[in-house]
Design a protein around this nucleic acid. Structure first.
Lengths: 211, 211, 211, 211
DNA sequence: CAGTAAACGAGACGGTACGTCACGTCTTCAG
DNA sequence: CTGAAGACGTGACGTACCGTCTCGTTTACTG
């Protein structure tokens, strides 16, 4: 006794989905999230508005999926280019030197966050997630958590190697260097440089108190 | 040949300002930021739309000022209630035990962030700030920075007492416990409890590596 | 290389046609002509939209045919019920008393026009015909003209009997009592009663000037 | 306890009203009533849609008022051009020869109904009135009735002069020549010529039966 | 203390976008 | 290989707000 007879996803037009993702990302980069409208996305994608409303319930959802799709395609492309198993592509290196490994990855993150093509949609998505419960959950689950898990895994490996105290909770420990970076980027409370993340790693590993 | 003949702020109606702040905060709590409209604020405040547009340029600005005003009134009320000089009201205590002092303040912050009356507008403001340059700057300057300065000051005092290494940059050091809290709250990446902030302070002060 | 590969009418589904006629007439009675949609007819008839578009080019056409079909079925049923040759069924009686015969038929027409089941679709059809050339022609040809011919025939018989002046054009003469009735019904310029049509017949036959 | 707080008509923009009337009539002449949209009228008039919805509730109402306005302006212009009191402008002449007077006026009506500029909107209005109760009432009251009253008055004068039987109801009598004309025009059941209306008048005044 | 200029409440205006509905066409899949 | 089902591009619907622009009406300063 469905009220609205859900659409039949097996008949969905792949062409339209692609075009909508592309249009959404392009518009957000060009004119910003708040000026991007569903009508504008539809027009740019050469698609009827109803085709968007049929499959998504809000602008935030479209953007989230577009962004996830972009991430997947990028990851696949990167993995392919490197001739690497995609499953390995996003690992944090483990050279045995924990500080060096973290600094390497966080420096790369700083560079990525400074890329204007990435920044506009990612920032918009984060803001939407802060205010829209539904987007928030999928955002954390699909985008944020997987990244954090990598850090947690690296910290656990370090614990086994004796480089991190055994009683440290990795899920909290990683926040000492990840969250400051996130906050500076999101709220603009400070500049993002390689030196800054190096300092963060040093402080986090060694603490602020004298040894 | 003035372009716009700026309004004469000496003639501004205090009554209207009050009513607009109240209406804005009420609406954001009741229906959320994105459903709050300038027209709605005006109607609720019993005010003409032009009176809003005369003094503010966007919904974000109205909210920001309403929120600052709320903070000031709360602070003044709290100080008065405590019979304390308002200038002292927001200090971080210095009992000589840095960890205890930080835990005390951060636990209070956790409680404050869990207050629904505070949460909706504050969160909305943070989200707006992430996306709107103008709001962002005033938000950081007026709301975020003053709070961070208090932590920085406390850390500097701790350095003089030898409880924090002399080579630590207090502005970065404070982020080790403040930013994780902020991120969990804004992005919902974990729960906010007193135990959590206690752990944060311990990790931050003592580091993750074995001593 | 046919342009449109016209549908093969020999393969047409009689079941669908019936269902579409029924659905169309039911919807027009229930919700009115302008709120009746092709999509709605298709859904109600349990038929694909294409099945409608294949055989009719507009809502007006569907209605027109549905109505013609209804009329035919009614006539056949009435004739059968009366045990009469259907060809005679729609004749205007000729008792020798022209005025009485006309009054009899026009009174029946008044009753018919007051039947709500008849009224909604018929009125919608008339309105559509006033604005849509294509519908108009078929409407006049199939529905209006046959009725008018009956009056013309009766007037011609009256001319032979000497009850109507020989120089009168029956096609114009009949309008004196038929058109006023039609206008009152269509435009609501006056009430429709048996007394009214009696008066019309009297005036038409005897004229307005003193004799 | 009004649900919608009716608009303040004293603040209404005369400019917009004019532009909307003009746009509506132009569009109906150019592309027909059913293809004319509120959006189209607004665009053509250089007006926001809401300005139309604020003052009218349907396309039919806009057209009706546009048409009434057109009629008033025409009448005023005609009266001025003729140097005549506008109150006299629409009288049916009374030369003492009833048949001649009626033929004169009906011939003029035929000419008017053949004017394409007049025809499209007038016909659309009549059709709308047949189907839309609200429009219908105002249509009859404002457009149809005043015209019919003129004929009724002329017939009453003829009764006093002894040219029409005293027992004839003028409101019904006039339908003998007015309604046939209306029906031919609206439903296209026959051609409209001067000869036709002459015949109508003759039949109506003298009846169809031999004298 | 009147005169007057600005701020005010109200809300109409030209617009943009919303989310929904139906159009007429095109594609898929079951009988 | 027909026909129901329904997704698609299109475009109008009627509504909500936008930011601007008059309207009178307070309100508070100035002469």
């Amino acid at each position: 006794m469905a009220t609205k007879t859900a659409p039949d996803s097996s008949r969905r037009s792949e062409r339209s989905r692609r075009a909508i993702y592309d249009a959404a990302l392009a518009l957000i980069s060009e004119i910003g999230y708040s000026k991007t409208t569903i009508e504008g996305i539809a027009a740019r994608a050469g698609v009827g508005k109803q085709t968007i409303y049929r499959w998504w319930s809000s602008k935030g959802e479209v953007l989230l999926e577009a962004f996830l799709d972009l991430g997947e395609r990028n990851a696949a492309a990167a993995a392919e280019a490197a001739g690497v198993d995609p499953a390995d592509a996003r690992h944090i290196p483990d050279t045995g030197d924990l500080a060096a490994d973290l600094k390497y990855v966080l420096r790369a993150t700083v560079d990525e966050l400074s890329d204007p093509a990435f920044e506009a949609p990612y920032r918009a998505l984060a803001a939407e997630g802060m205010v829209n419960r539904e987007v928030s959950e999928r955002y954390v689950e699909k985008l944020l958590e997987p990244g954090l898990q990598l850090y947690a895994a690296r910290l656990r490996a370090a614990q086994e190697a004796g480089d991190v105290r055994a009683d440290v909770d990795p899920r909290i420990g990683l926040e000492l260097f990840v969250s400051p970076l996130a906050q500076r980027w999101l709220q603009g409370t400070g500049e993002l440089t390689h030196a800054y993340v190096d300092t963060l790693v040093d402080y986090a590993l060694n603490g602020l108190s004298p040894r």
